[in-house]
Amino acid sequence: MGLNPFVSIRRDLHKIPELGFQEFKTQKYLLTYLQTLPGDRMEIETWKTGILVKVKGLNPSKTIGYRTDIDGLQITEETGLEFHSEHEGKMHACGHDLHMSIALGVLTHTILNPVQDDVLFIFQPAEEGPGGAEPMLASDIMQKWMPDMIFALHIAPEYPVGTIALKEGLLFANTSELYIDLKGKGGHAAYPHLSNDMIVAASALVTQLQTIISRNVDPLDSAVITLGIINGGTAQNIIAENVHLEGTIRTFSDENMQKVKQRIEDIIEGIEKGYQCSISLDYGAMYHQVYNNEELAREFMEFIAGHTDLTVHECKEAMTGEDFGFMTRDIPGFMFWLGVNSEYGLHHSKLNPNEAAIEKAIEAAVKYIEYKGNKKS
């Protein structure tokens, strides 16, 4: 017995991961597949490296949106799979290859078995960065085809295949990148008094930044500042003139995000004065929280529990970031976790999702679209 066609598609896509707004091979692959489907019931538009496909309903009164992301990550794959990444230093380490194959499965079924309402399939680039959802929402084609509701999924390595997880309300956090550059005065290691050492300044800055969460955020609320990169210095006997830091901020409220950023700026101002240096700050890409529409999320949970053999788990909110939050900000919608039972987690070089989850996800999304798309408004 041969592979499920959408498992085969997933493996093809797994080989060609591309970074945000560079998904040229991916877009071409997707468009080539779409050309194999009956064209009389769908309209196809491209936006940058993304694709929008509108499947025409039999007697539409609304538009249902389904979104998938299509980009990969800058990670060297270590899975040992036969269909491993062919792009050096890049990998589908967040499951977007599964997301796309599931979306194609749902789209194919919807074209061959149309519902009453229109269904818009959104293949969105640059979810991992620099962020594709917000500019895509503002595009002319999206404005013309704006759905009345929208949903999406994200693989979850920690849940078994056959489980989906979601909750009403807040699901994923507000996130912001963090880039900090310190510039002082370099010099000989033997004459520190003639220099302004940015290793020392950066050490003080890192320590003080870690007090923000413990001393400025309500202990009953949640926020995170993580610094993942620190680079500085050129030799052991040279005082470092420049240090570069990169990190991320995560909060469960807009108010806390603004408070954390204000404290970062206050601390930086103090470090500049105390260590006689200049510091530049850039927040990079910022993602809005994913907030699941209460009514739609509850309806989906009840529908899946009653009409499929999937196990529905009501989960807690997570500090994960997802730019689908911009879509749930502007359109009533929800996102759910799809169990894929992988030993290794998201963004890991050995992530290896169980492909049996693909068929489960297609079935769940198809049945919900049939229910929602044939339901009178």
Rank of each mutant, 00 (worst) to 15 (best):
T226R: 05
K25L: 14
K144R: 15
L209E: 09
M198E: 13
N113A: 07
G131L: 02
D266E: 15
T46D: 08
V206G: 10
P60T: 10
Q74D: 08
Q210G: 07
E128C: 02
L281V: 11
R215D: 11
G270P: 11
L182M: 13
H154A: 06
K376D: 12
G184D: 09
Q208R: 15
A189Y: 02
E322W: 03
F6A: 07
G131E: 01
T207M: 14
V312I: 10
I249P: 01
G105H: 09
K56P: 07
F24K: 14
E158G: 00
E43T: 12
G233A: 07
V290T: 15
S176W: 05
G232C: 09
E269F: 11
I16M: 05
L178P: 03
K261L: 11
P147S: 13
L227Q: 05
I64S: 06
A364K: 01
G233M: 02
D140T: 12
K56Y: 13
P353Q: 04
G129Y: 03
L52N: 02
L31H: 03
G80P: 08
K360T: 03
H14T: 04
H84P: 00
E82F: 05
Y368T: 06
Y275W: 13
K90E: 12
D148W: 07
Y275L: 06
M327E: 05
I212R: 05
S349W: 01
G20Y: 00
V366H: 04
P192D: 10
P157T: 13
N231P: 00
P125Q: 09
I212L: 08
L98R: 00
I212K: 06
G65C: 10
A305Q: 14
L112Q: 14
L31E: 14
T248G: 10
S176R: 05
F252P: 00
H288E: 14
E294Q: 13
E78S: 07
G325K: 04
S214E: 08
K259V: 12
F172T: 08
E241H: 06
S342N: 04
F123K: 05
L30G: 04
M136G: 05
I180V: 15
G228E: 00
L112I: 01
F303N: 11
R250A: 05
E359T: 13
K261F: 08
Q210F: 14
S139G: 10
I141G: 03
A165T: 02
E168W: 02
N256I: 12
A361G: 13
R67Q: 10
L98H: 04
I229K: 12
F326V: 00
G162E: 07
T32N: 15
Y344K: 11
F336N: 03
L120K: 06
A318L: 14
L120D: 07
L227V: 07
E128K: 02
G233H: 02
L194N: 12
M1F: 10
V55A: 13
H87N: 15
K56H: 15
F123H: 02
S253F: 04
K259A: 13
D221E: 15
M335D: 02
V243Y: 03
D197R: 04
D97H: 03
R67H: 09
H92F: 00
G80C: 09
I267A: 06
P114D: 06
V55Q: 09
E134R: 11
M146R: 15
L166Y: 04
R215H: 11
T49D: 03
V340F: 01
S139F: 08
V7W: 01
K376G: 13
K273C: 06
A201C: 11
K28G: 05
